[in-house]
Amino acid sequence: MSGLWGVLQEHFPELLAGFLVTIRLVAIAFVIAMVVGAVVAALRISPSKWLQRIGGVYVETFRNIPLLVLLFISFAGLRRAGVPITPWIAGTASLGLYTAAYVAEALRSGAFAVGKGQIDAALSLGFSYASALRRIVIPQAFRSVIPTIGSLVIAMIRNSAIVGVSLLALPDLLKEARIIQSRTFETGEVFFWAAIGYLVLTLTATVAFRLLERRFEVRR
């Protein structure tokens, strides 16, 4: 059987399985990116020069190493060094930590836009500097950078495609498509459906972030 619909019908189970793996991969990486991104942003705007530097080193490291190289290091490299790392840990950590660097930068710029008056107000109420950041600055920074984070998440979904086909034995959507393609040579059809799968995810993310943006808009 061939043709677009034929390929989809015949290989639907594998493609769906890959699609679900991609969703899981992206969801875990998203959580890592947000949590680590927030922590690194907090370091970058802390009053301590040393903490700022640690945050800076993180951002420059993960922003300047290609994601593919990170994947190679985190899986093959660490495994060779005797670290018992699974494809899932290597894949989600690489994608999450890589994206976290960009999230941290976005939050940092958002935090600067929040303004010193907000910190003054929180401190004058008895909050510690750390709580002022956590309760007042970071939540506002998050809100003002929702559109930017939306773009980062869409980029992350697209970037996730290289996780499975790099060294990792992680059967995500593109990996499954590759396997089908190498068996059937129905190249155009199979990758078309893979592209549709990614499009469904990115469009969902676009809509979700639009809604978040509307819900959490901060008027000043």
């Binding site: 008056g117 107000a121 929180a122 004058s124 109420l125 008895g126 809100r143």
Partner: peptide, 17 residues
């Protein structure tokens, strides 16, 4: 100490969110 001292600012500095 700061929790015992209230401060009111020129620009209000209310938390907008």
């Amino acid at each position: 100490i700061r929790a015992q001292i209230g401060m009111v600012f020129q620009q209000f500095n209310l938390f907008p969110h």
